[in-house]
């Protein structure tokens, strides 16, 4: 489903050139569960951003569902992000002035879905993620685990084909992190590809596939037999 061919990403930081990704070739099948690990600055997040179309490769090709998306216009990229990809971040990134339900609704609003069609879907999603009692609360009134659940609900409401999670448990205690991971893995079992950037080797062991980046290169690509 996702195909990267010889992807390079070079940043210019001041007068220094940073080679964040070097000749990365990667194929990810639909409904795959993949963790990306590696030391800080190894290019994990950059890889995730390129796959999520938030960043463009300096060179190389990116095919998403058989379509070359490397050189799409901003509008087209935005549409692909909206329809095919859900993001989950370490710091949740909810809009603080909107309620939980409104945050979950946001992708539908941006997609121009009329209010009538939205409300049912939002209610359904809020229930499915166990947020019914908290749906009118603002992010500031929610616990970390609840915030991340809102963020995951938001990432899934457009029924994407992949969820990209950048340290989704990094800001949560162990038990809550476990819950959040269960939630993500459940979505994966329903056929959504799951890419998780993490430092936690425990998550690495749970995933069906595991890659390791060092200095912008994939140095390890292992499938767990379980």
């Amino acid at each position: 489903m996702i195909g990267l061919e010889k992807v390079n990403r070079i940043f210019q930081v001041g007068d220094q050139t940073v080679h964040a990704l070097r000749d990365v070739d990667l194929r990810i099948e639909p409904s795959e569960y993949l963790t990306i690990m590696g030391p800080s600055g190894s290019g994990k997040s950059t890889l995730l951003h390129i796959i999520g179309l938030l960043d463009r490769p300096t060179s190389g090709r990116y095919l998403l569902e058989g379509r070359d998306v490397t050189h799409l216009t901003d509008q087209e990229q935005a549409q692909v992000r909206r329809r095919r990809i859900g993001f989950v971040f370490q710091f949740f990134h909810l809009v603080p002035r909107l309620s939980a339900a409104q945050n979950i609704e946001l992708p539908l609003v941006l997609a121009g879905v009329p209010a009538r069609e939205r409300s049912g879907k939002v209610r359904q999603t809020v229930q499915a993620f166990g947020l019914a009692e908290r749906s009118e609360h603002r992010p500031g009134q929610l616990s970390g685990g609840q915030r991340q659940r809102v963020a995951i609900a938001r990432a899934t409401i457009m029924e994407p084909s992949a969820i990209l999670a950048d340290e989704p448990t990094g800001n949560l205690d162990r038990a809550t992190g476990q819950e959040v991971l269960d939630l993500l893995e459940n979505l994966n079992r329903r056929g959504i590809a799951l890419l998780v950037v993490t430092h936690d080797p425990e998550i690495g062991r749970r995933a069906s596939r595991h890659i390791r980046l060092v200095d912008g290169r994939i140095v390890e690509d292992r499938r767990n037999s379980t």
């Binding site: 938030l54 901003d74 935005a78 992000r81 909206r82 990134h93 946001l106 941006l110 938001r154 457009m158």
Partner: peptide, 16 residues
């Protein structure tokens, strides 16, 4: 700035 980042991640184009 953060909110703008989220909106972009959720599929808002530059024009939007």
């Amino acid at each position: 700035t953060g909110e703008i980042g989220i909106l972009k991640a959720l599929g808002a184009s530059q024009r939007k």
